[in-house]
Amino acid sequence: MNVILIAVISLGAIGLISAIVLYVCSKKFAVHEDARIAQVAEVLPQANCGGCGYPGCAGFAGACVKAADAGSLEGKLCPVGGAPVMEEVAAILGMEAVVTEPKVAVVRCNGTCENRPRTNVYDGAWNCAIANATAIGETSCAFGCLGCGDCVAACQFDAIHMNPETGLPEVDEEKCTACGSCVKACPRHIIELQPKGKKGRRMVVMCVNKDKGPVANKVCAVSCIACGKCAKVCEFDAITIEANLAYIAPQKCRLCRKCEEACPKNTIHAMNFPPRKPKVEVVPAEKPARVSNGNEPTKVEQ
């Protein structure tokens, strides 16, 4: 009898103490989680692919709730679920779904070893941010790619790689999820997220040099010198020249390719277009910084 009593009391005491400890811990270390995060996560595909740029679907759900609190769901897109899923998410959060076009990262520099002569040797930590702070880089261009590959390191999807021949990063458009990590990682803001466009076709000014024309002309064979010929030839007002640099607004561009012909420095590239008819000379020497070969039909439509 006595033995049983002792056993019951001691076990009961242990149970009670544990319960108190558990209670205190659960109160003290309680993590408040927004109920909407779980709801949003439920409608997501649960593929945890990371294509949205967040660590898995739960991370994306949290980001969506945060963005909704901030006022807009813009820029949030589940590449797997696409627009239908995003509409459901928006409904849960009481927001309007922002129709986001699929985007892709574009490296806007074509300063290959041939185009942009090396004037100096950089001898330091192999990191763009540090190289950028050290000096202008190995060339005389203060805006061009430094080639240390911070974007490559930042990419979670193995979608951007250094081309050892050109010394420039190239985006694998199939793999790119437009998460924007590389855009943030680039200290010179060379990489931009642009709408993928029909069949992945788009016109891009492959230069971000804001120096005056003569200076820019000197440092690189394919730099934008802001001559304005492209803007003149454009019938749709898609090209603006600001701070000594041409920029093609993807929303306005109708892909007529006139600017490409007009550019005296081959700075404007037409991406993912089929090869031109023989009457115009194909310019294979000026391969833009991209991966998918322009000759084959691209499979970027969702």
Binding site: N120, V121, Y122, D123, G124, I130, T134
Partner: peptide, 9 residues
């Protein structure tokens, strides 16, 4: 003959 080296101190 050389290209100048740049590095941090």
């Amino acid at each position: 003959a050389n290209k100048l080296t740049v590095s941090l101190s």
